[in-house]
Design a protein around this nucleic acid. Structure first.
Lengths: 351, 351
DNA sequence: CTGTTAGCGCCTTCAC
DNA sequence: GTGAAGGCGCTAACAG
């Protein structure tokens, strides 16, 4: 290997300006699609930039101007399926707009989480922040972000009082529909495994479950509700509790697919056959839902679309902030769901 | 909501210098843990910084100095489990060193992938790059990175000729052990579902499989090898092909857990009972391995540790580059594996 | 041990 | 339509 110091140093804006015979400001205008440049000049600059293989430096741009083309995505815990899908969608949409994605993990419950999130956003000069649950519904985090002047989008926030943009999904409605589906199958003793308590969606799903029971005139039995944490093992543990009761449920609605998968394992460990002895349904329609046995009846959430929508929303907000400082009204986007019937729920065995 | 422009503007290094009664350079020295500052001065500066809630600006630091405290992780496709785990490990280790992680998706097969990767790395001024497979074994990508002077670590590269740092795992050895395990169980017709052809690991695992067969004096039957793409559905399709043969295998080794899970589905669709009629083993020990039925016998890869190791390696390289331009010898880290026995493989049924 | 001067590469404000 | 000067916040290279 030779001692050459690598490739030619990166071209700078001055190089382009010199080659095109214009000032750096004109190059800047062309690069940023600003007006007030004659078409001929614009073309000449573009050509010069291309021939020098010039692409602007993010740090310099970020320091001098007001755009960094950086978006930060903060998450605490997230199931593998949810994170992967969300990130995939976010990356696609960032690519569309020339943005780059920074990922950060932050423990919601740790002290100072809010100020840490806001500090990172501001030090890194990110143009926007995506807050995944449970960070999206933590008061400390959202309060700090709201004060920071950095646009942020909350993914399925529990509390809509923070005047920012957010992305919504009818978790309660989906849970209601799923529970009603089980009732329609003939189940009367329906258990529920709640999701991680810090997630707003957990509460929503629990409420939808309760509402469905009430409307059907079924008494909500506290003994049929168990707390999970969205993980496979927590679902397994919660299901064990439920199944050990003297009068166990004939169906279990787990607040996500991972827990439902854990519940299937727990049922099998007790010698129960799913769905003959016990119906189990999940939530998310993640990959895991198609590899359990039986495959999970669940609710499909369009996670990737939601991710893309959140980036869209954020970038619109960024642009709006740039053009007019006007306090645009709360902006949000709503997403639907689909009930996906697979094999894990059937009518209860006649007893 | 009031019209206040948010919180107080961020303190700058000058503010700290003024408050501490020193020059900005001294503040800089303290912040970067450089020598040549009296302990008393150092303490005074730290105190001033803390009281002003000062934290340095990344863009400015990156533009002026040679460190951005940014690492970029590039990936193309990756199974949900692999990506989530790797990213989790990388984030932990980045946190240890005050680094932040940028994620980028890049299609290996797209034209110009190499120059795009290198361009992004240089525009963003990242201090280092992590290349996940299959990018880690793409000649175009590694060549461009090698020329770029940005340190990069290749995760399980297929070809070690690119003189950079990398992270290794004995894929062939693990596959050999797993196949030998199946042979030890009494299987003679062992099928294999290959992984995505762009991944070096796919080749390694296939070779380990072949070697084990040879050593056992079994003829490698090309009809028992099918091509997959690491996805669940590709595994399902590949298994269908294998099982439709006139003389199907009694055991299948899939090159990852996702494909093994798909293979279980395919077997079930044909009315076969796993493992009684067909043994199936996977690779990775991902979450999915514990929710299939039966749960997968597989090989555990310490993905999170590998991710942490890769960040370590990168940061060591970055430091080494900074201190001495000396061409440090190839540096790498090697990781072991464990055979994890679950329920998906047993001796073949006597025929 | 500490401070001064200069400049990273770009965008901003204002002139022209 | 275009250009010139100035500065974003920090670190580098030297000076003391």
């Amino acid at each position: 290997m030779d001692e050459m110091d690598g490739s030619t140093p990166r071209a700078k804006i001055d190089d382009v300006a010199r080659l095109a015979g214009v000032s750096t400001k004109t190059v800047s205008r062309v690069l940023n699609n600003e007006p007030n440049v004659r078409e001929a000049t614009r073309a000449r600059v573009k050509e010069a930039a291309a021939s020098l293989n010039y692409t602007p430096d993010f740090s310099a741009r970020s320091l001098a101007g007001q755009k960094s083309y950086l978006i930060a995505m903060f998450y605490d815990t997230a199931s593998q399926g949810y994170l992967s899908q969300f990130q995939a969608g976010a990356l696609v949409q960032c690519g569309e707009y020339g943005y780059h994605l920074l990922v950060e993990r932050c423990d919601v419950s740790s002290p100072g989480a809010g100020s840490r999130v806001a500090d990172i956003a501001s030090r890194l000069r990110v143009d926007g922040v995506i807050l995944l649950p449970p960070l999206s519904n933590d008061a400390d985090v959202t309060a700090h972000m709201a004060r920071s002047s950095v646009p942020f989008v909350q993914i399925v926030p529990a509390d809509l009082s923070a005047a920012s943009c957010y992305l919504n999904m009818d978790d309660a409605g989906a849970a209601y529909e799923l529970t009603t589906y089980l009732i329609g199958l003939g189940h009367r003793r329906i258990g529920h495994i709640k999701g991680h308590p810090a997630h707003g969606a957990s509460v929503q799903r629990y409420e939808g479950y309760c509402k469905a029971l009430e409307e059907a005139g079924l008494t909500a039995d506290a003994a049929l509700v168990s707390q999970g944490l969205f993980s496979i093992s927590s679902g397994e543990g919660a299901a064990e509790d439920l199944l050990a009761k003297s009068n166990p449920p004939t169906a279990i609605f787990a607040a996500n697919d991972d827990m439902a998968a854990g519940a299937i394992n727990a049922a099998r460990a007790r010698g129960l056959v799913v769905p003959d002895d016990l119906s189990i349904v999940g939530f998310d329609d993640s990959e895991i839902a198609s590899v359990t046995y039986p495959p999970l009846t669940t609710v499909r959430q369009p996670i990737e679309d939601m991710a893309r929508g959140s980036v869209d929303l954020l970038i619109e907000t960024i642009k709006a902030n740039g053009e007019t400082r006007a306090g645009s009204a709360d902006r949000f986007r709503h997403f639907g769901f689909d009930l996906v019937e697979r094999g894990s729920a059937t009518p209860p065995r006649r007893s």
